[in-house]
Every structure is written in C-alpha cells, then in structure tokens.
C-alpha cells in the first residue's frame, strides 16, 4: 500500500464514520429530546405512576389545547380545558374524538408540551396519544388521559400547556416500516 492509498483509506474510513454518525443522529436526537425535553415532545410510552406524597403546597395549572390538522374530518375536545393540580397528584382528563366524515378514518394525536422543560416532569400513565385511533363515520369516542406531574417540577413552572394536534394517519404502516428500516428500529 502506498502512502497515498493509506491516507485515502483513512479518509474514507472517516467519511464512513460520519455517514454512520449522520444516520445515528436521528435516533440520537430522539433520545436526547427524551432526556432533556429539548423539543417539548412528551414520552410516547406509558410510564408507571409514582406513588408518594402529594405536594399540597403548590398548585400548577395544566391547560389542554386541541387542534385538528388538515385533511381529517375529526374534532377533538377536552372535557376540561384547564385543571389545577398538585405536583405528585395523579389526574384524569377525558377527551372526546368525533368523526364528522362520511367514511371511517384513522388519526393520531401528536402531543407537545410547553414549557419544554416541563415535558420531563409530565408522566403520562395512560394516553390516547400512545397509539392511533380509528373512527367509523359519525363515531364518537371518549378516551382518558391520566397524568401526574412529578414533584421535582421546577419551582418557576406554574402553567403547563399540553397541546394535541390531530393528524390523519393513513400511510402509517409504510411510514413506520421505512423509519424502522432507516433508523435500525429506532424512532
């Protein structure tokens, strides 16, 4: 191997490392977001309730915003638009899904938490957002969200806003396949 070939081999190796790193960036970003709450995405998996003392000295207002994206004839409404809870207290809010369309369709509610650091301290025990829903034409479905704000929620957070945006989920199967393929089962 000539010195030039050695250098080229090393450079190509570095290049391959960077390609690998780029592919890894997508799942890494998700992991990073889960750890730091970077983008206000809440966890997509149910978490166990943490029993313990309820911090009754503090009240936190939790607001619910529901929106529907384009292309889905659904309405999502929260039974309570706003609740006041103590950190540590588990609370259930019911959400109603209605399909106004003339055919059955599938949708998924995408959550976003603001301020983003609160997403780390929001434990969802059950949530309709963990999976997509399928509604027949005219069907109405009530689903619960059970959540708990952990007691170590930063002192300066007094209001937590939870937004759910409904999106159509028609090509869901294909999407998850390709993502699984490209992210090596990540996502």
């Amino acid at each position: 191997m000539t010195p030039v070939q050695r250098t080229v081999t090393k450079t190509l190796f570095a290049l391959m490392m960077m390609v690998g790193f780029t592919i890894a960036l997508v799942p890494l970003y998700d992991v990073f977001c889960n750890i730091t709450g970077l983008n206000g995405k809440s966890a997509s998996q149910p978490r166990a309730i943490v029993s313990g003392e309820v911090d009754e000295s503090r009240y936190v207002t939790v607001q619910f915003i529901t929106r529907t994206g384009s292309g889905l004839p659904w309405r999502l409404t929260a039974q309570d638009r706003q609740v006041r809870v103590h950190p540590g207290q588990a609370y259930e809010v019911r959400f109603a899904f209605v399909n106004h369309g003339k055919t059955a369709s599938r949708g998924r509610a995408v959550p976003s938490v603001s301020p983003s650091e609160a997403s780390l301290h929001l434990r969802k025990i059950t949530c309709f957002c963990f999976q997509e829903q399928r509604l027949e034409a005219g069907e109405r479905l009530e689903l619960p969200l059970m959540f708990q704000l952990s007691r170590d929620l930063p002192e300066n957070v007094h209001t937590v806003t939870l937004a759910y945006t409904l999106y159509p989920a028609a090509e869901e199967q294909l999407t998850s396949n390709v993502i699984a393929l490209t992210q090596g089962g990540g996502a």
């Binding site: 997508v26 970003y29 977001c33 983008n39 995405k41 997509s44 994206g69 998924r108 995408v110 945006t165 999106y167 159509p168 989920a169 090509e171 869901e172 294909l174 999407t175 390709v178 993502i179 490209t182 996502a187």
Partner: peptide, 13 residues
C-alpha cells in the same frame, strides 16, 4: 416514500 422524519403529522419533528 412516505416517511415522516420532518413531518409532525407522522411523529417527526
């Protein structure tokens, strides 16, 4: 190809 890396509707960002 119908993925959703950057599409919030499919769980992307």
């Amino acid at each position: 190809f119908g993925t959703s890396f950057f599409n919030a509707a499919g769980g992307g960002d």
